[in-house]
Simulated assay, not measured.
Amino acid sequence: MRTISQVVDDGVATPEIEETFGKIKDALNAPFTPNFFKVWAVSHESLKGIWPVMNHILTSGRVGRRLKEMIFVAISSLKECHYCEAAHHAFCLNIGIPKEQIESLIQNHGIESGDPKEKAAIDFAVRLAKNSHASSEQDFQALRGLGFDDEEIMEIIAMSGMAVFYNHLANATKINIDSGFTKILAGK
């Protein structure tokens, strides 16, 4: 019996899909197209919707990719999405986030030391991933007090929701962790 993850190995990539894969690699600064996107090649219409969301929320905006990747790792660990946790752990390593901070994101869904602004944003995003009703005016005031403006706070909320959404997609499709991510995590 075929499993969902075999779709990655058995899927046919049309020239249009290959072009999309190239855009994904470039935007993510990845040496390969992650299996997360390859599995969606069987539903190009879905891929055409899924990719732009990640591209805009993760790689664009005023909140830096460093913080967004840390949010992604913390929420992926919380939601037990092993694929997203591994992928974004590898991205965190590639952009220079210290291993101790990554381990804290995985074990505690937050960081214990480091920039208080990053800690507050991660804590807020993780709390929203647990319960989207958990935001309050006090959260906005606290984040503003640390230097975030309203646009950046909305990006943090979008990042939290996007991480939950992508965790759902990865868990539901049982995607195999890419060997490229495994090598990065092993320090190779």
Rank of each mutant, 00 (worst) to 15 (best):
E19H: 12
E19D: 14
T20M: 15
F21L: 10
G22R: 14
I24H: 05
I24D: 05
D26T: 15
A27D: 07
L28S: 07
N29K: 14
A30V: 04
P31V: 07
F32V: 15
F32K: 06
T33Y: 01
T33P: 06
P34Q: 01
N35I: 10
N35M: 05
N35W: 03
N35E: 03
F36D: 01
F37N: 02
S43W: 06
H44N: 10
E45Q: 15
S46L: 14
L47R: 07
G49F: 06
G49S: 03
I50E: 06
I50Q: 11
W51E: 08
P52L: 08
V53T: 14
V53D: 11
M54G: 13
H56T: 09
I57C: 04
L58N: 10
T59K: 11
S60D: 15
V63N: 04
G64V: 08
R65N: 09
R65C: 05
L67K: 00
L67P: 00
L67M: 03
M70A: 05
F72L: 06
F72Q: 12
F72R: 02
A74P: 10
S76G: 13
S77F: 09
L78F: 15
K79H: 09
K79W: 08
E80D: 15
E80C: 11
E85H: 02
E85V: 01
A86G: 01
A87D: 08
A87W: 09
A87N: 07
A87S: 13
H89M: 06
F91P: 00
F91A: 05
F91E: 05
L93S: 03
N94K: 15
N94S: 13
I95D: 08
I95G: 03
I95Y: 13
G96M: 06
I97G: 00
P98A: 14
K99D: 10
K99Y: 11
K99V: 07
E100M: 02
E100T: 03
